[in-house]
């Protein structure tokens, strides 16, 4: 029983990375209708900036994470305004092509700036160590990740359900023309939503740097899992992304324990099972 509980807790911390990246992906899709292939690259940029500001420049870890989020959010605004906006009225395939092109561009840009080799800075001293849970040492860093993921979840709920901005976003997502007619500046809403999604991807990336390697291409691995999660939860549904992240993170962890031979297959099996039962995703209305 203790083994199961511990493995589940490990899965929960993995789920938090997935949650941070899939939250941004699903928010952008839900409001803008853009399936952003480059979202994984924003995760990668957040990781590189986090590494540079914390591991090279020497800023405190928390400051480095916030600065990475801000920088990637600004980049997100530039991408939305400069590249995506002209494509809103066109066939969605143009958006897919553009964001896929961005993946290649950002990966090569990262290679040019940071080189091809992996980077991994030390863990902040205050996040080293462990606490004993179920008779085994549980990493403090993983506990920190779970707390951060929960905070982000709560923050997003407040933002979307309890603020004027959140109501404007929901109105825009429901009917763009009607929202504009009611005086909501929908272009501004689009930009701010894209910035928020980008910042969330960067948060996931920057938080990953002390325990995961940063290298060109890491975004590609993350975006595949994020897509799976958004499909499981229902495209564009934030609660679905949260539940999907927990499902994939925790069940994958149990898969490693119970079916090590099929670990790679396990995530896809979860998605296939959900799609068979609820093709629109678990939380889609």
């Amino acid at each position: 029983m203790e083994v199961l509980a511990y493995q589940g807790l490990i899965g929960l911390s993995s789920a938090m990375y997935l949650w941070l990246i899939s939250a941004g992906l699903t928010i952008i899709f839900g409001v803008l209708g853009v399936l952003n292939f480059a979202h994984g690259s924003l995760f990668m940029l957040g990781a590189y900036l986090g590494y540079t500001l914390y591991g090279v420049v020497g800023l405190p870890f928390g400051v480095a994470v916030l600065a990475s989020m801000a920088a990637v959010a600004l980049l997100g605004a530039a991408v939305e305004r400069g590249l995506l906006r002209p494509l809103y009225g066109l066939d969605p395939s143009y958006q897919l092509l553009l964001t896929f092109g961005l993946v290649l561009f950002l990966d090569d840009l990262a290679k040019l700036v940071w080189g091809g080799v992996f980077r991994i800075p030390p863990i902040p001293p205050w996040l080293q160590g462990s606490v004993v849970l179920f008779g085994r040492p549980y990493p403090l860093y993983n506990a920190f990740l779970m707390a951060t993921g929960a905070l982000v979840g709560g923050g997003l709920w407040v933002l979307f359900d309890r603020t004027w901005w959140g109501r404007a976003v929901r109105a825009t997502a429901a009917d763009r023309d009607m929202a504009a007619a009611l005086g909501i500046r929908t272009p501004g809403v689009f930009s701010s939503v894209f910035m928020l999604g980008s910042a969330l991807a960067a948060l996931g990336g920057a938080l990953s740097t002390p325990v995961r390697p940063v290298a060109p291409g890491i975004g590609a691995a993350m975006i595949v899992q994020a897509f799976i999660i958004t499909v499981i939860g229902g495209l564009g549904n934030l609660r679905g992304a949260f539940a999907g992240s927990l499902l994939v993170g925790v069940l994958s962890s149990y898969g490693t324990l119970w079916f090590p031979e099929f670990e790679l297959f396990f995530v896809f099996a979860i998605m296939a099972a959900v799609l068979l039962v609820r093709p629109q995703g678990l939380f889609a209305r």
């Binding site: 493995q7 085994r136 990953s208 291409g217 590609a220 962890s253 490693t256």
Partner: peptide
């Protein structure tokens, strides 16, 4: 391209 080995470590240590 595995970046999170935590589940593997936990499973083996069990």
């Amino acid at each position: 391209l595995t970046t999170d080995f935590s589940p593997h470590i936990a499973a083996v240590m069990a």
